[in-house]
């Protein structure tokens, strides 16, 4: 796996025994972190704990549970669509610090999420956004030619299905509830959750097919 490259030769993690050039802004981040710790704004332990906390959130362990519950429990689904944050909290999961709107895909409607201005993302459910979600090409093109962008992800949406693009903001995040795959009647919630991928909750893909 490559590190994030954004059109310029980007330095690798700063390693004192490895004399690679290190960018000014990378050093700026490191300097700021050291100073904030020294000034007691937060501790080195807070930093370690926060890194671990951010690593611990994943689409599989968080978002997929919410979707699987919505698939098996109509009352929960209704509550989720009404007030996403409250419904997520009721499962004992962190809803994040913004409003959360769940968008239900149906045979007539396909929802897909973007943040055209930056990279707003339902991180408490899906963890860190993938690099492509933050990319200029996804942000610029999805609102203009969503079907074409979806096709690039291998998702062909028939012409008679409406595609709705939702632009996230600093105060409002979206998560897509994909359609429950056919042939999953009687499946347990745990098994259903394995079909719910990150991309299906962003809306660039469908939930995994059973076969």
């Amino acid at each position: 796996m490559a590190h994030e490259h954004h059109g310029h030769d980007h330095p690798h993690p700063f390693q004192p025994d490895h004399p690679e050039p290190t960018s000014y802004y990378e050093l700026l981040g490191m300097a700021l972190n050291e100073l904030l710790i020294e000034k007691g704004v937060y501790t080195a332990g807070d930093m370690r704990a926060m890194i671990e906390q951010l690593e611990a959130v994943s689409p599989e362990t968080h978002g997929a549970k919410v979707v699987a519950r919505a698939w098996v429990d109509p009352d929960f689904k209704a509550a989720l669509l009404r007030d996403g944050a409250a419904a997520v909290s009721s499962l004992g999961l962190d809803p994040g610090y913004t409003e959360l709107t769940a968008l239900e895909n149906t045979p007539r409607l396909h929802n897909v999420v973007v943040c055209t201005l930056c990279s707003c993302y339902p991180r408490s459910l899906l963890g860190r956004p993938p690099a492509w979600y933050k990319s200029a090409s996804y942000r610029s093109r999805l609102v203009r030619e969503p079907r074409k962008v979806l096709a690039e992800f291998g998702t062909t949406v028939p012409d008679d299905v409406e595609v709705r693009v939702h632009d996230s903001t600093a105060e409002l995040r979206y998560v897509v509830v994909p359609m429950r795959p056919e042939g999953t009647e009687g499946w347990s919630e745990e098994d259903l959750a394995t079909l719910v991928t990150r991309d299906s909750m962003i809306g660039v893909a469908r939930a995994k097919a059973t076969r």
Binding site: E4, T116, W132, S140
Partner: peptide, 20 residues
């Protein structure tokens, strides 16, 4: 403010983050 601009096709590959 990128919404609606032209752009290249989306590179869907996964990327790992550096420690910093």
């Amino acid at each position: 403010d990128l919404g609606g601009l032209d752009g290249d096709s989306v590179d869907p590959s996964e990327h790992d983050l550096a420690q910093w």
